[in-house]
Computed example of a mutant assay.
Amino acid sequence: MAVIQFLGSTAGRWVRIIAGVVLVILAAILGGWWWLLAALGAVFIAAGAFDFCLLAPLAGKPFKGSELRKTFTS
């Protein structure tokens, strides 16, 4: 639950965006089948930029970041 709370936070959003950028850059450097990492990186970037958490529904929490944060402040 603490992981989901962190991922829903502003710091968690930035970590996802930075991790996604790192994966895309790594895939560009390595080439070949490593481009699959770029797809995963793109998902991380989108999740951070558009404020959603893919793991939250697995814990019964809302998918959207703003709603997720409300569940932890109440």
Rank of each mutant, 00 (worst) to 15 (best):
Met1Phe: 15
Met1Ile: 14
Ala2Gln: 14
Ala2Pro: 15
Val3Arg: 10
Ile4Gly: 04
Ile4Lys: 11
Phe6Ser: 04
Leu7Ile: 10
Leu7Thr: 07
Leu7Val: 07
Leu7Cys: 10
Gly8Asp: 11
Gly8Gln: 07
Gly8Asn: 09
Gly8Cys: 10
Gly8Ile: 05
Gly8Tyr: 04
Ser9Thr: 09
Ser9Lys: 07
Thr10Gln: 12
Ala11Met: 12
Ala11Thr: 14
Gly12Asn: 13
Gly12Arg: 11
Gly12Tyr: 05
Arg13Leu: 05
Arg13His: 09
Arg13Glu: 10
Arg16His: 07
Arg16Leu: 07
Arg16Gly: 04
Ile17Asn: 06
Ile17Thr: 06
Ile18Arg: 02
Ile18Lys: 02
Gly20Cys: 08
Val22Gly: 04
Leu23Glu: 15
Ile25Phe: 12
Ile25Tyr: 06
Ile25Met: 10
Leu26Thr: 15
Leu26Pro: 00
Leu26Ala: 15
Ala27Gln: 04
Ile29Val: 15
Ile29Pro: 07
Ile29Gln: 12
Gly31Cys: 08
Gly31Glu: 05
Gly31Tyr: 11
Gly32Ala: 14
Gly32Arg: 10
Gly32Trp: 12
Gly32Phe: 11
Leu36Asn: 05
Leu36Ile: 15
Leu37Ala: 12
Leu37Gly: 11
Ala38Ser: 14
Ala38Trp: 07
Ala38Val: 10
Leu40Lys: 00
Leu40Phe: 12
Leu40His: 02
Leu40Met: 11
Gly41Lys: 01
Ala42Cys: 12
Val43Gln: 01
Val43Glu: 00
Ile45Asn: 01
Ile45His: 03
Ala46Leu: 15
Ala46Val: 14
Ala47Tyr: 03
Gly48His: 04
Gly48Ser: 09
Ala49Cys: 08
Phe50Ser: 11
Phe50Ala: 14
Asp51Lys: 15
Phe52Cys: 03
Phe52Pro: 00
Cys53Tyr: 03
Cys53Phe: 06
Leu55Ile: 09
Leu55Val: 08
Ala56Thr: 03
Ala56Val: 03
Pro57Lys: 12
Pro57Cys: 11
Leu58His: 09
Leu58Thr: 11
Ala59Lys: 13
Ala59Asp: 09
Ala59Trp: 02
Gly60Leu: 08
Gly60Gln: 09
Gly60Cys: 08
Gly60Arg: 05
Lys61Thr: 00
Lys61Gln: 13
Phe63Met: 04
Phe63Val: 02
Phe63Asp: 00
Lys64Gly: 08
Lys64Ser: 10
Gly65Cys: 09
Gly65Thr: 13
Ser66Asp: 14
Ser66Trp: 08
Arg69Leu: 12
Arg69Ser: 08
Arg69Ala: 11
Lys70Cys: 01
Thr71Gln: 13
Phe72Leu: 08
Thr73His: 02
Ser74Phe: 00
Ser74Asp: 09
